[in-house]
Structure formats: structure tokens, C-alpha cells
């Protein structure tokens, strides 16, 4: 194993140095006492770094065979240090740009505004709501309960069925991992793959976090089955937007 590593380190040396000294270095390793081979490995590793970073290598172009093709190298066989630095900076800049675009795109796709977009009408315009819309015509602005309702109404039928209410309870309970009564953005982020499968965790958080302080204080309230029952004014086992709004008031 050590022999293989040593030969590999020698092969990684610049070609002129390896061609000139590689064979003798390998012979020295073969003749050495097994107890000194670790030290020889360290020496080869240091030499490798030194040769590539500190030493100018002379090109040893072999003489062309008569009648054979002639190949020539354009420039040095080592990359220019400035080019490496510039290339690294450009690569980092490209990755940051790409990451920024992806983040912006994801945020735009998952924002509450996009979820409450044209298919659900403009809540500011009276009469613009189709039957079954969640916000009553003429309402000045969408209410916290409406956006929460939107998020929990998985099938978008305008009512919360028992199944959706139970799912909401389970979901909100799952979000609050440390059971401290508040759900932080970090708790949403950790569970994001599972939440995306259910309702879209980032979207749920953005919708429910009304004041944008990255903490949801009232979510446990909605996770309580007794309060869900209390909000069900007509006791039909389903919550409508009006019932949610009426309960909150």
C-alpha cells in the first residue's frame, strides 16, 4: 500500500522532475528500511507541493522522430496563477448568481401572493369573486384567517373538511418540533421536504407569519381540536371562511 502511494505521489510530480529523478526516488524507496517509509512518504508529499508551486520547470521536449509527427506545446504546461485566481472568482460569481436566481424564483413561486393569484380573484376589487371564493366581496383586505384558511384548504373547495382539519392539526403539530408553542422558520425549513409533499412548508409559513417576524405565535391555537370545534359555528363539522373570520373576531 505504502509503495503504491509513493509511486502515485511520484507520478503526480511535474513531468521534467519526474523524468529526471522519479526512477531513482522509487529505487531509494524500495531499498529503504520499512521503518523510514512513512518519512519518505511525507518527503514525497512535500516535494510534490514544492515542485508545483515554487519551482520553474524546464520543458524537456523530446526530439521528434524523423518522418514522424511533431507536436508542440503552446505556452507552459502549468496554468497561469492569475488565470487560476480569475477563473475561481468568475466561477464563484456565477454560482452566487445562479443560487440567487434560484432562490428568487422559489420565493416568487411559493409566495402567498402567487398562491392567492388570479385564479382566486383580487380581494381588493368588489364583485370580482366567483362563487365559492373565500373573501367576501367588499372586504377591505384579506384577513389572517383567510390566508391560513387558504393554506389549510388542501383541495381548494372553499371548506375545511374533517380530513383537512385533522391534517392541519397533524401538520402544525409536526411543525412545532420542540413543543414550545411557537413555530420558527427553522422548524419549517427542517421539515421542508415533508411539508412540500403536503402543503408546501415555505408557502405555509409565509402565509401564516402575518407580521413577517419569522415566528408564528398563534399556530398552536389552530392546532387545538377544541378550538377548531369552537370555530365551527354551525356544528356541521366544516369550517368556512366566515366561521374562521367570525371566530377570530
Amino acid at each position: 500500500m505504502m509503495r503504491w502511494v509513493y509511486h502515485f505521489l511520484i507520478r503526480l510530480h511535474p513531468n521534467p522532475f519526474r523524468a529526471r529523478h522519479g526512477r531513482e526516488m522509487e529505487e531509494i524507496f524500495e531499498d529503504s528500511d520499512p521503518g523510514t517509509r512513512g518519512w519518505l512518504l511525507r518527503d514525497a508529499a512535500v516535494s510534490l507541493v514544492r515542485q508545483w508551486t515554487l519551482r520553474e520547470q524546464e520543458e524537456s521536449t523530446p526530439a521528434p522522430v524523423e518522418g514522424g509527427p511533431v507536436f508542440q506545446l503552446v505556452g507552459a504546461d502549468r496554468p497561469d496563477a492569475k488565470a487560476v485566481v480569475h477563473g475561481s472568482l468568475v466561477t464563484i460569481a456565477l454560482w452566487l448568481t445562479l443560487a440567487g436566481l434560484m432562490t428568487y424564483g422559489a420565493a416568487k413561486r411559493l409566495s402567498p401572493r402567487s398562491l392567492n393569484g388570479s385564479s382566486r380573484g383580487n380581494p381588493q376589487v368588489a364583485g370580482a369573486y366567483a362563487p365559492g371564493e373565500r373573501t367576501a366581496p367588499g372586504a377591505p383586505a384579506r384577513f389572517f384567517g383567510d390566508t391560513l384558511f387558504d393554506a389549510l384548504d388542501a383541495n381548494g373547495d372553499g371548506v375545511l373538511s374533517n380530513g383537512e382539519a385533522n391534517l392541519a392539526r397533524l401538520l402544525l403539530h409536526t411543525l412545532d418540533r420542540n413543543r414550545d408553542g411557537v413555530v420558527t422558520a427553522g422548524e419549517c425549513g427542517i421539515r421542508l421536504p415533508m411539508l412540500q409533499r403536503w402543503l408546501g412548508g415555505a408557502a405555509v409559513f409565509q402565509i401564516i407569519d402575518r407580521n413577517g417576524d419569522q415566528v408564528i405565535e398563534e399556530i398552536e391555537e389552530w392546532a387545538s381540536p377544541s378550538l377548531l370545534r369552537a370555530a365551527d359555528a354551525d356544528r356541521d363539522g366544516r369550517l368556512t371562511p366566515e366561521e374562521v373570520r367570525g371566530y377570530r373576531r
Binding site: 529526471r20 531509494i28 518527503d43 512535500v46 516535494s47 510534490l48
Partner: peptide, 30 residues
């Protein structure tokens, strides 16, 4: 001397207190 002989001679005249590895030796010789 050749490289390996230089390594041995260095170890001998320093009573084994100073050792030169092949990588350092051939770099220095160049």
C-alpha cells in the same frame, strides 16, 4: 556520489541527526 549515496553520507557525517529525503535532495541538486 549519486543521490542515495549522498543521503547515506549525510546521515553518517551527522551521526544520523540530520536526514535528507529524496524529494528535498533532488530538488536541492537541481
Amino acid at each position: 556520489r549519486h543521490g542515495y549515496s549522498i543521503m547515506q553520507e549525510v546521515a553518517r557525517h551527522s551521526d544520523g541527526r540530520y536526514r535528507i529525503g529524496p524529494g528535498t535532495l533532488y530538488d536541492s541538486l537541481d
